[in-house]
Design a protein around this nucleic acid. Sequence first.
DNA 1: TCATATAACTGACCAAAAGTCAATGACTTA
DNA 2: TAAGTCATTGACTTTTGGTCAGTTATATGA
Lengths: 202, 202
Amino acid sequence: MNKRQTAALETRRKLITAGLELLKEKGFDAINVEDITKKAGVAKGTFYTYFKRKEDIVLDISRVPFGEIAEELEKMNDLTIIEKLPHYFYRFMECVESCGINVCRQWTRDVLDPNSVPDTKDGQKWKYDFEMLKGILENAVSNGELKEDTPVELLTHIIISELYGMMTCWCMSDGKFEPLDWTQRFCEIQIDAIFKQYIKVN
Amino acid sequence: MNKRQTAALETRRKLITAGLELLKEKGFDAINVEDITKKAGVAKGTFYTYFKRKEDIVLDISRVPFGEIAEELEKMNDLTIIEKLPHYFYRFMECVESCGINVCRQWTRDVLDPNSVPDTKDGQKWKYDFEMLKGILENAVSNGELKEDTPVELLTHIIISELYGMMTCWCMSDGKFEPLDWTQRFCEIQIDAIFKQYIKVN
DNA sequence: TCATATAACTGACCAAAAGTCAATGACTTA
DNA sequence: TAAGTCATTGACTTTTGGTCAGTTATATGA
């Protein structure tokens, strides 16, 4: 990595940091591209060296916290699926809480935007989550934790829709309830139910 | 209702009809206010007699189909809660499917928009759904279907987050799976689980 | 070392479209 | 029938996302 590349990476980092702070504080519609570049100490045009559209920075802003969870989860090979998932739900909602309502709102709005970055692997948050969760379930099938006839795709969809649903619901309620307490009770009720009929009993 | 009021109502209706068609076909970002007013046969300024912002028409566009379900549900007093809910889920996703991905996407984006109409009773779709579902659960408690210690608020949140999650997930997947089949299987797995411990056995 | 190439950066500028508002005239009311 | 109301109009304003030709700093290679 040469000097030029390092500087470029630093500029990108500054934009994301500035963007995160402003987004968290004021919300997406209340800030404009120039607010971000001013705070980052660069010119407006520079923003467009790194992001195609104003909206595109949001996926990068939230990539850090949410990306971490996925990595964590993949490492936990000693846990059963019934233990892993509540952990994932909990950590996911921990991120939701720490990112705050403005970031989560805009993130969800972005992913629902038909024009949002479709080309990068990481940009497709949904596909990324989907593949990762599916992998975990497939793994549980192949190591004998779940029965062979487990409808992996269906269960993956159900789990993701519940994760996203919780976040959406929390945002829509204007953050009126405690995401973490709530998630715990949610998992108690739902996770067992999802897998009950597919768990192998030896 | 005098002539003037009738005409105004008709103008509003024309805007909503034109808006629905364009939104369904092209998506929200691909159309502008003038497209809608031209199709409705009125001037651009007229749009703003009926809607504060471009976005506000979307809630009105989707009010009709989704409002109908709520009405249906409230009438079905002879069904148990375990029967009512799958019906609601199914009808909800039927609306999702018939409205199409563009409408559902934008509806969700709108409800997540912190600037979207906060003043009208009907505008607050989330609160509306919430109150309605809560009422149904409360009713089930008071008529002895569910135990007295049922955590009505929690369950209401869970149900709504699942509804919204399904819709969001379907939109994010670009409508890649069949919403109705999926909902049925979803309900089979989840609805019983939610109520299992709260159903009264006589 | 120097000349050429490259890539990040700049900020004035452009274009699109959301939203405004004074003027209009059809309808209502007393 | 005259005064008042209100939906309607469309030219105009404003905002801001996004562009791009020019500049500058760094890399490359002869």
